[in-house]
């Protein structure tokens, strides 16, 4: 009870401090731009100006041809399609690599060879093959998500404790019962970590891909703004990227809480 009170008190203090830190940051920013004029508005626009542009961007399609919602949705569409395919293939493959010795021997060396290549490094070659449309970007996202999913599912399954398998075996469990009732539950926390890492990686890879080659999306919007010296739109784009990424992270956190009950959280 007492501890609980302290807990909420600490919590309040924490929230207060966070708000302060953001306010101080905005204050200094405003100070060095509009108030003191250390940075010109063509280099670093003031927070007031950025906020104005942000609101304006919801309705204004200039100069990049679309509103911010349209760009965000375009980015999300690519990111999520690549992500879901990456998860759909990566998680089962990681599990299979860890569980079946033959798959492990056959796939793991190849995978270890490709793993250090960042997803975005595939983009030039993908553009050559597929152009700058949805497909090549989705492929980059797919590769980024896929690798994170494989690695985490693989080590999750490898974490399975021998004694848990033995319990199943002595009760006469089949191989597939051991996989579904022992190994996969053991791996679930790691699999979720993989899903989270993969989501972050997908989003990052997408923005990078859009900066390099695209016709819409947040990365495209940022790149266009750079070309016409509109730093306020660049900052608006960055903020939109940050907020969307944070919301995605929050959603997957929520999913994890729904799926995984207490026993998995130690």
């Amino acid at each position: 009870m007492n501890q609980n009170k302290n807990g909420t008190k600490d919590n309040k203090k924490y929230i207060l401090m966070s708000i302060c830190s953001v306010l101080v940051f905005l204050f200094i920013w405003e100070l060095v731009t509009d108030v003191l004029g250390i940075f010109k508005s063509t280099m670093l626009p003031s927070p007031v100006k950025v906020f104005g542009t942000f609101i304006d961007k919801f309705t204004n399609t200039k100069p990049d041809g679309a509103t911010i919602q349209v760009h965000t949705l375009a980015s999300l569409k690519v990111a999520l399609s690549g992500y879901l395919i990456g998860v759909g293939i990566g998680v089962p493959l990681g599990i299979a690599m860890a569980w079946f010795r033959k798959v492990d021997c056959f796939v793991t060396p190849l995978f270890d060879l490709l793993r250090p290549v960042p997803g975005i490094a595939w983009l030039p070659v993908l553009i050559v093959f597929f152009g700058i449309g949805l497909l090549s970007k989705a492929m980059v996202i797919f590769l980024s998500a896929f690798i994170a999913c494989v690695i985490n599912s693989y080590s999750g399954i490898k974490n399975t404790r021998m004694v848990h398998l033995w319990v199943g075996q002595t009760f006469g469990a089949t191989r597939s019962q051991l996989l579904f009732k022992v190994a996969i539950p053991t791996a679930l926390p790691m699999i979720f970590t993989g899903l989270k890492v993969a989501l972050g990686a997908s989003w990052n890879a997408l923005i990078a891909a859009e900066l390099l080659a695209s016709t819409k999306g947040l990365g495209f919007m940022i790149n266009q703004a750079r070309g016409i010296y509109r730093p306020d739109i660049i900052l608006v784009g960055m903020i939109a990227v940050g907020i969307t990424g944070a919301i995605l992270g929050y959603l997957i956190e929520l999913l994890q809480k729904l799926v995984m009950k207490r026993g998995w959280r130690q």
Binding site: V163, H164, V167, F171, G172, P185, K261, G263
Partner: peptide, 21 residues
Amino acid sequence: DLKKHNVAYIFQEYSNMPWLT
């Protein structure tokens, strides 16, 4: 044959599955 014979084994280490009640 562990699938046919009804055998149970109590281990030295803790063997409860942490994700199950």
